[in-house]
C-alpha cells in the first residue's frame, strides 16, 4: 500500500498540474485577503463595511480567508481521477494493481496528503501576509487568541477533505470538464443560494462545515447571523462528506468496465 501511495504521489508530482492548482488556491486566498486588509475599518457613507482590525471577528476573517481556495482542492481531486480516464492511464494503473480498491485507497490517501500540504502552504502564505498587516494596522498579533489555531488547523484539514470530495465527484462523473463544471456550479451557485435561502440546510453543507471550522459566519466575516455548527461538528460533517465521496469513488470504480 505504501508503494502505491508513493506511486500516486509521483503521479501528481510528475506533471505540472499541481503547480497551477497551488498558484490558483494561494492566489485566490491572497486576493481575498488583500481586499479584506484594504477595506477593514474603512467607512462607506458613514457605514462601516468591515469592522476595524481591533475587532476579533476581523482577525478571524483575515485568517479564515485562507480556506477560500478549497474549490481548487476539489478540482485537484477531480483532475486526479478524471485525468486517468481522459488520458487512459487508468488502464495501466489497474494492470499494475488489479485490486482496484487498493488503487483508489492509495489515491485517496495521496490526495488527502497533498491537500493537507496545499492547505499548509496556503495557511503559511496567509499568515505571512495577514500577520504583518494586523501588526501595522494595530490589530491583534497573537496567533493563539481569537480561535486562530483552530481556524488555521481547520483550513488545512478542510483542504485535505475537499480533495477527497473532488476524487469522489470525479469518479462518479468521470468526464473532466463536466465534473469541474458541476463542482464550480455547486460551490459558487447552488451552495451559496441554499445557504442564503435555507440557512438551516446550509449549515449542513460542505461550505457550512468550513464556516463552522473556521469560525466565520458568512459574508465578509462580519458578524452575520447564519446558523453554524460547532467547530467539532463542522469537522465531523466535512469528514463525513470526504468519506462518503471516497466510498462513492471506490464503489463506482471497482466493478466498472475499463474500455
Amino acid at each position: 500500500m505504501i508503494r502505491l501511495v508513493r506511486a500516486e504521489l509521483l503521479k501528481i508530482r510528475s506533471t505540472r498540474m499541481w503547480i497551477g492548482m497551488l498558484v490558483l488556491s494561494a492566489g485566490f486566498a491572497l486576493l481575498g485577503l488583500v481586499f479584506l486588509i484594504a477595506l477593514a475599518g474603512t467607512e462607506f457613507d458613514g457605514e462601516s463595511g468591515i469592522p476595524p482590525v481591533t475587532e476579533p471577528d476581523t482577525v478571524r476573517a483575515f485568517y479564515a480567508n485562507a480556506s477560500s481556495g478549497v474549490l481548487f482542492m476539489m478540482i485537484l481531486g477531480i483532475i486526479g481521477i478524471t485525468g486517468e480516464y481522459r488520458h487512459q492511464t487508468i488502464t495501466q494503473a489497474f494492470l499494475a494493481t488489479p485490486r482496484r480498491g487498493r488503487v483508489l485507497g492509495a489515491k485517496l490517501v495521496s490526495y488527502f496528503l497533498f491537500g493537507l500540504v496545499f492547505g499548509l502552504a496556503t495557511v503559511l502564505i496567509t499568515v505571512a501576509v495577514a500577520w504583518p498587516a494586523l501588526a501595522i494596522k494595530g490589530g491583534s498579533t497573537s496567533l493563539l487568541d481569537h480561535d486562530v489555531p483552530t481556524i488555521l488547523g481547520g483550513t488545512v484539514l478542510a483542504m485535505g477533505l475537499y480533495a477527497l470530495v473532488g476524487l469522489g465527484l470525479g469518479a462518479l462523473i468521470r468526464n473532466q470538464i463536466a465534473a469541474i463544471i458541476v463542482a464550480v456550479a455547486w460551490v459558487q451557485l447552488v451552495e451559496a443560494i441554499l445557504t442564503f435561502a435555507v440557512p438551516d440546510v446550509g449549515k449542513w453543507l460542505p461550505a457550512g462545515a468550513v464556516r463552522a471550522i473556521t469560525h466565520t459566519t458568512g459574508g465578509f466575516g462580519g458578524p452575520g447571523d447564519l446558523p453554524t455548527l460547532p467547530a467539532w461538528g463542522g469537522v465531523l460533517v466535512l469528514l463525513a462528506y470526504g468519506l462518503a465521496f471516497a466510498a462513492i469513488a471506490t464503489a463506482t470504480t471497482i466493478r466498472r468496465d475499463i474500455t
Binding site: R3, L4, R6, A7, L10, K11, S14, T15, R16, M17, G83, H87, Q88, T89, T91, Q92, A93, L95, A96, T97, P98
Partner: peptide
C-alpha cells in the same frame, strides 16, 4: 501481475505532460 503478464493495449495511455521515464517509474513503483 506485472511479473507474470505484460500488456500493451493502445498507444494512448499516457499523460501528455509526464515524461516517459516518470511514466515507467510510476508503473515500476506501483
Amino acid at each position: 501481475p506485472a511479473k507474470e503478464v505484460g500488456a500493451a493495449l493502445e498507444a494512448t495511455g499516457f499523460h501528455p505532460g509526464r515524461s516517459a521515464r516518470d511514466h515507467l517509474r510510476v508503473s515500476c513503483m506501483a
